Measured scan of single mutants.
Amino acid sequence: DWEDIVRFLRKLFELGEEVVIGDWHNHHREEIKRLIEWLEKHF
């Protein structure tokens, strides 16, 4: 279910905002944000 995936990604992203998950999070933050925005537009 796409909504569950979007919710999971958003939760992960919000957690990442508070607890910076090292370089991985910083590197992928923009991609995650773009992916969430893309999914919201399409689903």
Rank of each mutant, 00 (worst) to 15 (best):
D23Y: 03
G16V: 15
V6P: 02
H27P: 04
E18I: 11
I21W: 09
V20A: 08
F13N: 00
V20F: 13
E30C: 09
I5L: 11
K33N: 05
E40K: 12
D23N: 07
W24K: 09
E14A: 10
W38Q: 04
E18C: 03
W2N: 01
D1T: 14
D4P: 07
L9E: 00
H42C: 06
H25A: 10
V6M: 12
F43G: 02
E3R: 13
E14Q: 10
I5H: 01
G16N: 04
F43M: 04
L35R: 00
G16C: 05
H28K: 04
I32L: 12
D4V: 13
K33Y: 06
I32G: 01
H28G: 10
L35S: 02
W24A: 08
D1F: 15
E14D: 04
K11A: 12
R10Q: 13
L35H: 01
E3N: 05
I36K: 02
E17C: 01
V20Y: 08
W38I: 06
R7F: 04
H28E: 04
K11E: 12
I5D: 00
D23R: 04
R29C: 08
E37L: 08
V19D: 06
L9V: 02
L15E: 03
K33M: 11
R10T: 13
D23A: 05
D23T: 02
I36E: 01
I32H: 02
R29E: 05
E31H: 11
E14V: 03
L9A: 01
G16F: 15
R7P: 00
I5S: 01
D1W: 15
K41E: 05
D4H: 10
V6R: 03
E31F: 15
R29S: 12
H28M: 15
I21F: 08
K33H: 06
L9K: 00
W24S: 07
I32Y: 07
I36Y: 05
H28Y: 14
F8E: 06
W24R: 09
H28D: 06
H42A: 09
E14W: 12
R34C: 03
E14C: 03
V20D: 06
E18Q: 14
I5Q: 00
V19R: 04
H42E: 05
K41W: 12
